[in-house]
């Protein structure tokens, strides 16, 4: 130390560490709550490919470019990709998970409001990435 007291700096660092600990604990807790998928959630198989989305319901019905779900029911998306990586995103419901070739990623949500929402691709996937969208219809 160059001759002067460094106490203020260490106190400052301690405050920073406390704040970071709080942020970390809070984030950990929310992530834990959010990741807990209800057992009765209906599985929707999502496949991304250049440059459209395909959805398959549990009963085997397939939809391309649009997805119809019921309000108030939990859904679990099983997401994968066919050609290159994509990212499945319903921004209005904070649902986001990468679609990776050869992997099955899951994310769940329970829509609470009827309406139309945009599904988009968030991972760069080539020529028409900007236009790789689908529509989510939440019905009563």
């Amino acid at each position: 130390m160059s001759g002067h007291s460094n106490w203020p700096e260490w106190i400052y660092v301690a405050v920073v560490i406390c704040l970071l600990t709080y942020v970390g604990a809070e984030a950990w807790n929310v992530e834990r709550i959010v990741e807990h998928t209800p057992a009765e959630a209906e599985v929707i198989k999502v496949t991304g490919q250049q440059w459209f989305w395909t959805f398959e319901h549990e009963d085997g019905t397939k939809e391309v470019g649009e997805l119809h779900l019921k309000k108030g029911k939990p859904y679990k998306f099983e997401i994968t990709a066919k050609d290159v990586n994509h990212s499945f995103n319903i921004h209005d419901y904070v649902v986001l998970q990468d679609a990776i070739v050869g992997r099955l990623n899951t994310v769940w949500f329970a829509p609470d409001k009827a309406g139309e929402y945009t599904i988009q691709c968030r991972e760069y996937c080539g020529l028409l990435h900007y236009n790789m969208r689908a529509t989510l219809y939440v019905e009563e």
Binding site: L19, E26, Y93, A110, D112
Partner: peptide, 23 residues
């Protein structure tokens, strides 16, 4: 009752922004 994913995550966001903007 299912947790509201949107509310949980955005709440966390607003808490963090409160800290960030105060600091």
């Amino acid at each position: 009752q299912y947790i509201n994913r949107k509310a949980e995550i955005w709440n966390l966001f607003f808490k963090m922004m409160t800290i960030a903007f105060t600091v």
